[in-house]
Design a protein around this nucleic acid. Structure first.
Length: 195
DNA sequence: TTATGGATCTTCT
DNA sequence: GAAGATCCATAAA
């Protein structure tokens, strides 16, 4: 029996719930005639006003205002002068929560990804928030796209990982709220950034 | 093998 | 002016 795709609905709930639902989901981008995609294997939740590490913690700014819109939209930000990272906006409108996509397992268009990344190793292709953006050619033109109604970027049903394979840990690369275990990843998957 | 410097956008002090 | 949800080339050991 065919299950309906419930992700759009789940995203409008808490970012923690959305994080688990996003693991295993297929993320696809189409640029020109090139299609690239991968299964999500690692994410981090950011919970707006309740989370000192979130960009949205202090309220909307020109950069973070998209996080305060409805769930299912794409938040792309530029960091450290040279890197992009993608988030899926979650929660109710005005909440300001989002889920950062940290790693993918490459699926479609591996050769295209390799040439964009100038890298031959499959494992190095998408095992980091900025690496996967480079591999899938995600940049500011994706900002504000709806994942369920966009020609360029989409989320679709992928692989079903058993809930037993999902592990939680503390988030990476932040200095506030460091003890919250809001990073979720697939156990034993070789494309996760750290064991 | 571990350490450091560089790229240079956005926000906060 | 400084720091940040980063990665990589290069240097030292």
């Amino acid at each position: 029996m065919q299950k309906t795709f419930q992700l759009p609905k789940i995203l409008s709930h808490s970012p923690l719930r959305a994080s688990r639902a996003l693991l295993g989901t297929l993320l696809t981008t189409k640029i020109g005639n090139k299609t690239t995609s991968g299964y999500i294997v690692e994410v981090e939740a950011y919970d707006g006003r309740n989370d000192a590490a979130a960009h949205s913690f202090r309220g909307p700014t020109p950069r973070s205002q998209i996080m305060f819109g409805p769930a299912g939209y794409c938040y792309v930000y530029f960091i450290y002068g040279m890197h992009f990272c993608v988030n899926v906006v979650t929660g109710a409108t005005g909440h300001g929560s989002a889920v950062l996509i940290r790693a993918l397992e490459p699926f479609e268009g591996v050769d295209v990804m390799k040439s964009r990344r100038k890298c031959d190793s499959l494992e190095q292709l998408t095992n980091g928030p900025s690496k996967l953006c480079q591999a899938l050619a995600i940049d500011k033109k994706m900002l504000g796209q709806n994942f369920f109604d966009s020609k360029f970027i989409s989320l679709s049903p992928g692989r079903n990982f058993s809930p037993k394979k999902i592990e939680a840990s503390t988030r990476i690369g932040i200095t506030k709220a460091v003890d919250l275990k809001w990073r979720f990843f697939i156990k034993d998957n070789r494309f996760v950034t750290k064991p």
